[in-house]
């Protein structure tokens, strides 16, 4: 009896859950439906209507416009994610297991870098990067690597700190040096953290707009900037814009669908308690 009642109560939860799911999916619907409409069909008043036909013209047009910048983004995001993960892993290892004098000061200093508003470094950043000629994709990679160091370091440090010290001591007795321990003991068991950090860096670099708009020009725009520019400063074809928006979001959505669990952990890594 009681169990039945409980079960019913539980099933009642589906109503608010489905309601919330609809709320979360509404913008997605608008994006999809508008992406299939023709230019003349696009009107604010009829935004909830289904498109009159399923045509992929807008997607083809958007892809044609965005293809070069999708590659630019890929060329930028992959090295940025890989390099900052490697650096983060090394730093995390040293800060967790190989503390040197001053490490307790260095770590919070690095950590704080995660939270700075970019507005407070924007003017010097623009001046500096242009003065040393670090623009375009290489400049963007460097920016994402450097401003990614805090979060990658934190994630790996927390993970390594949770490993028992005995693991290292045993290896030390066997005569392994620091790099040996890192390479043969810690690296092989770091894969989960790597996945988390790679996903995090991948999505944040892919979605970044501020650095990209400052550092790149039309030959190497990443996709967020290209999307913003597709409109030009005057006439906007919303149907193509929406189709393009979906294309631009596709890689992160794909990573997120394929690796949902790790994506979740990646997000949690953003909190200090990760």
């Amino acid at each position: 009896m009681l169990k039945n009642l409980k079960l019913q109560k539980k099933h009642g939860l589906y109503i608010p859950l489905i309601g919330m799911a609809i709320f979360y999916l509404l913008p997605m619907y608008v994006m999809l439906a508008t992406g299939f409409k023709s230019f003349a069909e696009v009107d604010l008043k009829t935004m909830w209507n289904l498109p009159q036909g399923i045509a992929f013209d807008n997607y083809i047009e958007a892809y044609a416009k965005l293809a070069p910048s999708l590659w630019s983004s890929a060329k930028m995001v992959v090295p940025a994610a890989l390099i900052s993960s490697m650096l983060g892993s090394l730093n995390g290892f040293i800060l967790a297991k190989w503390k040197f004098k001053g490490a307790d000061i260095i770590f919070p200093l690095i950590l704080f870098g995660m939270f700075i508003p970019y507005q407070s470094i924007l003017i010097p950043f623009v001046q500096f990067m242009n003065a040393v000629g670090l623009t375009g994709i290489p400049g963007l990679i460097i920016a994402h690597v450097i401003y990614g160091i805090p979060i990658t370091t934190l994630t790996f440090r927390n993970y390594y700190a949770s490993l028992p010290q005995e693991l290292l001591e045993a290896a030390k007795i066997d005569g392994a040096d620091m790099l040996g321990i890192y390479r043969h003991i810690l690296l092989p068991i770091s894969m989960p953290s790597f996945v988390v950090v790679l996903i995090w860096q991948f999505t944040s670099a892919w979605n970044d707009f501020l650095f990209a708009v400052i550092l790149t020009s039309n030959t190497d725009w990443p996709v967020t900037v290209a999307l913003n520019n597709m409109a030009g400063s005057q006439i906007i074809s919303w149907n193509v814009q929406m189709a393009g928006s979906l294309l631009a979001a596709l890689p992160t959505l794909l990573v997120y669908i394929l690796l949902g669990r790790y994506f979740l952990r990646g997000l949690l890594a953003g909190s200090l308690k990760g």
Binding site: M20, A21, Y24, P27, M28, M31, T203, W206, N207, D208, F209, T224, L227, N228, S245, A248, A249, T252, L253, V255, Y256, G260, F263, L264, L267
Partner: peptide
């Protein structure tokens, strides 16, 4: 509930 986080604010 999580998927909006994967998308850029611009989009």
């Amino acid at each position: 509930f999580l998927f909006p986080m994967a998308i850029s604010y611009i989009v």
